[in-house]
Amino acid sequence: MTTVLVVDDQYLIRAGLVGLLHAAPGIDVVGEAGSGEEAVALAAEAAPEVILMDIRMPGMNGIEATERILARAADPVPRILILTTFDLDEYVYGALRAGASGFLLKDSGPERLLAAVTVVAGGDALFAPSVTRRLVEAYARRTACEQPPDLRALTSREREVLRLIAGGLSNLEIADRLYISEATVKTHLNRTMTKLNLDSRAQAVVAAYESGLVAPGR
C-alpha cells in the first residue's frame, strides 16, 4: 500500500485528487493540506511515501515546502511529485534543484496521475525527457549558481553517464548506448551523486547543466 499526502491550495482540485486516489487500489491517502506550512507539518506527522505538491501557493510555496520536508525527513525520505499548471513554469526548475522526484501537469489524465504515483513510489524519477530539457535549458542561464558543481572528482565514465542522464535518457537507454548493464549505470549514478553531494536524479540533471558538462540548446 502506497501512502500519499495531497497538497493543493485549491479545494476543488485537492478534493478531486483525493477522490481519485482513494478509489485506486494500492493507494492510501494519509492526509491533505491546503498550504505549504500545513504540508510540512503533515509530512512530519504522517510520513507519507509520496507527496503530490502544488507549486504555486500563497505563503510558503511548493519549492520551500519541498526543501523543508526533505531537510527534516528521516529515512525513508518521501518522494515529492510536483503538480503544475504550465510545463514551462519557472518554479519547476527550483523544485528540481530542491530535490523533487518529478513533476506532473495538472491537466494530465487520471491514468497518468496514478502511474506517476506508482513510478515515484518505486524510487524512479518522473521526467518526460523533452519537457525536462526545455525546463532546464529555459532557466539554467537565468539561475545564478555561486559555485558551479566541480566534476573533477568524477571518472570519465561517470561524466559520460551524467551527460546522458542530462540528455533525458533512462538507465536502460544509457546501458544500451554504453554497452554496459543497467546495474552498472545505477552504480555510476550513485557514485556521482555521492561525490557531488546530490540527493536526486533531478539534481544530477541540473548539476550537469550548471557545471557546463551539457550546454543549453545542445
Rank of each mutant, 00 (worst) to 15 (best):
T84W: 03
T85R: 03
F86E: 15
L88P: 01
E90S: 08
Y91P: 00
Y91N: 13
G94D: 09
G94H: 04
A95F: 05
R97G: 06
F103N: 02
L104W: 00
D107K: 09
G109F: 08
P110D: 00
L113T: 05
A116C: 13
V117M: 07
A121D: 05
A121P: 02
G122A: 07
D124E: 14
L126Q: 04
F127T: 04
F127K: 02
F127C: 07
F127W: 06
P129E: 05
P129V: 07
P129M: 09
S130K: 12
S130C: 06
V131K: 13
V131D: 14
V131T: 15
V131A: 15
R133P: 01
R134C: 06
A138Q: 09
A138R: 11
A140E: 10
R141A: 13
R142A: 13
C145D: 07
C145W: 08
C145H: 05
E146Y: 07
D150L: 08
D150H: 11
A153P: 06
A153F: 07
L154D: 05
L162R: 01
R163M: 10
R163H: 15
R163G: 09
L164S: 02
L164T: 04
A166R: 02
A166S: 09
A166K: 01
G168E: 01
S170K: 12
L172H: 11
L172V: 13
L172P: 03
E173W: 03
E173F: 05
I174R: 00
A175Y: 05
D176V: 10
R177K: 10
L178M: 14
S181R: 08
R191N: 08
T192P: 00
K195N: 10
K195G: 05
K195T: 12
L198Q: 02
S200T: 15
Q203H: 07
